[in-house]
Design a protein around this nucleic acid. Structure first.
Lengths: 223, 223, 223, 223
DNA sequence: AATGAATGAGTGTTCATTCAT
DNA sequence: CATGAATGAACACTCATTCAT
């Protein structure tokens, strides 16, 4: 009996593992397709094809196309939040002595998210278009907005704190948070227009790097 | 006879005027709809509705949905180019003595375009998404890309010149041009997430203003 | 007064003449367009363009697209009828002594119509397709059918008479009339598949000529 | 295991059978609708209605409206070709000693195709109208033209051979092939004008039969 | 669990026809 | 008389989603 139960348990675990793998493969496929064609022009058929399964199978694991993209975006937002939270802790515990580190930290929160999965990041950014929103149920949409907003609010509070601590020159914190996020988003978006794939990657990193440098220099020297 | 001809001429002028008005009203409607829902989710019916006409009437004046959006975007790209060209002339004729003015000038080339028609600017920026491209005929698409690219190239050449003239600190000019454009785009895109319309406008201007300030300060002081 | 009336009359005549010219030019345009693209694929715009007028002007002279094609076809059917009637008179007045002449006469009734306006003939033949019929009001459609049928009936009666007079071998007269018409129609239709324009014309005439020869030979020799 | 595999195999066979049935029912519906209204005036909705399914279902099995009609026509052209090829073999192997048999054979190649599916034959013939062609992709259109032409070319080569072998009187072989095909087409087309369905069928057969007789008599006796 | 099959709701686009001028 | 402008009604084709097996 004990043996049998154990067997069952192992079986269940395998099943669960396979299920998670299936879900992952769908998410991977969706990410690729969404990143390459945008949300609206991607079809469930294409995603199914990319995942090497059939369309209805997707619906076994995801309620809808919306659900699919949300399942990509929400974790990314959460990941960014984790980075920001860590930074907040450092700030609160007095580990940050230079304004540069604060701005750099925020940059890296986004930048790391981008680096960990450029495609998902692009999906997130594509997602923030009117193109995509609007058909989501209001509850979902506001939940999403809130999560995204929360990160920005966290950034603002950290920047404010930094200014109050004299680490940064005092400027409009709303504007500053927007600038940081806007820079990341804007630069990533430029990808879409570029062809020179090879050269491109280095450039992009160079661009973000320079952006960091400019902002931090300016913020800490500006008088 | 003279009288009659004059009458006819006046009639023709009125007709022409009315035709231009109709075209304008369609473009206005399209701009509004595109800006609010994005290109893909906007339907010709909605645009017609917004213009208070019927769908086939649009096709009297525009060959296709593509033609409609191109009629919005191309003039805007051209407008930006005009500003940049003027700046180039000033630069070449030695009227610009401070790196600040050069960077500010580029910013304003985009910023003015944005201000002259925020909605069209948003359409332009929405347009630069994979979501939208892809169904255009290759010839149109490349023409469009080229025009957009040309502006960026012009920016780069001016920035390079500025650096060579010692007006600006020498940095990666590709990255810098991307940053400037990316900042504008990124900041504008943030609009989509915002609701607080009133407050918003001031903020946005504040954001762009601060962005300019940051970049110019950094560029001219960086060592 | 008399002078004025005369002037008016002359004016009216000119007007009438111009009106007839206008109608003719529209019919010519319609014939060309219909013959080249078929009835359904021809648009009123194309016809207007070909006639170098505007679309609503067509509607001044013709009630509808249907009316337009009927105005082409009915006269042609009438023309064929005239030829057949003349042949009937010759037959009745004993002028025809050889079966060959009777069959040849029928052939020529159609053939002349074809020669006098190959394009209209093609329109007539294209018209006899389900493709085109069906949307006509039943009254118009049956009127048209009847006129077409009447010609066939006339042919049959002449062929019957010819057989009774011993000019032709006795065969199924229904079938024979169909064969003659079918041959003309079928051969003309082959045009549509041919490319070698130059060579084509001679061929066509050759084909019809050979057809006549075959039928007449067969009919008069068959035992 | 063996049992299970067998079960699966049977299931798959049934599925395949059902799929073929579905395809057949769509083709049947399309044939009926096309034959009754012509290609252009037939709508996918009508065909779907006739097949007792919905429009998108058609697109599961056929790529487009064009694909649908091609799926009707191409097999018919192929069927005709098979008959002609068989006739060619007989001719080459000296089995044909009488010109009558050659002409009759060609007639029957077409006639059998007509008999095996009068409606499809009508579709084929309707298809050879300018009304229908023109929107096909050039590659498809030329492929189609070629297949149709190939049959005519084969006819011509056989007739030429027959003349050289002395089986037939020497006449313009281009014209003769056209006449034979034209006769079949023309006679079939006459259907469209007829109402008296009952009587009609016999007539039609009579007509074709008489046509054969006339042509063969004429060809073999003409001097 | 997985899928082949089916579809309702929509999209851009076309065209014969009408009407105010 | 002539026309520029407008439109209602269609139509081919697509796609997210469901359901029977």
């Amino acid at each position: 009996m004990d043996k049998q139960n154990k067997h069952k348990s192992i079986c269940r675990q395998r099943k669960e593992r396979e299920k998670q793998q299936r879900i992952q493969s769908i998410l991977d496929a969706a990410r690729t397709v969404f990143a390459s064609k945008g949300y609206l022009k991607s079809t469930m058929d294409e995603i199914a094809m990319a995942a090497e399964i059939t369309k209805p199978t997707i619906y076994l694991y995801f309620k809808s196309k919306d659900d699919l993209i949300l399942s990509l975006i929400l974790p990314l937002i959460a990941e960014i939040r984790v980075h920001l939270k860590k930074l907040e802790k450092d700030l609160n515990s007095g580990k940050i002595h230079d304004g540069r580190d604060l701005v750099l930290g925020i940059f890296h929160a986004y930048y790391n998210a981008y680096e960990s999965s450029p495609e998902t990041f692009r999906v997130l950014q594509l997602f923030q278009q009117k193109d995509l929103l609007g058909d989501f149920k209001p509850e979902i949409r506001s939940a999403l907005d809130e999560k995204g907003r929360n990160n920005v609010i966290l950034c603002r509070s950290m920047l404010t704190q930094g200014m109050e601590m004299g680490l940064l020159k005092k400027v409009d914190v709303y504007a500053l948070a927007d600038i940081i996020w806007g820079l990341v988003v804007g630069v990533v978006q430029l990808e879409d227009c570029k062809n020179d794939e090879e050269n491109n990657h280095k450039l992009k990193i160079g661009t973000l790097g320079l952006a960091q440098q400019l902002i931090t220099e300016a913020l800490t020297r500006l008088e």
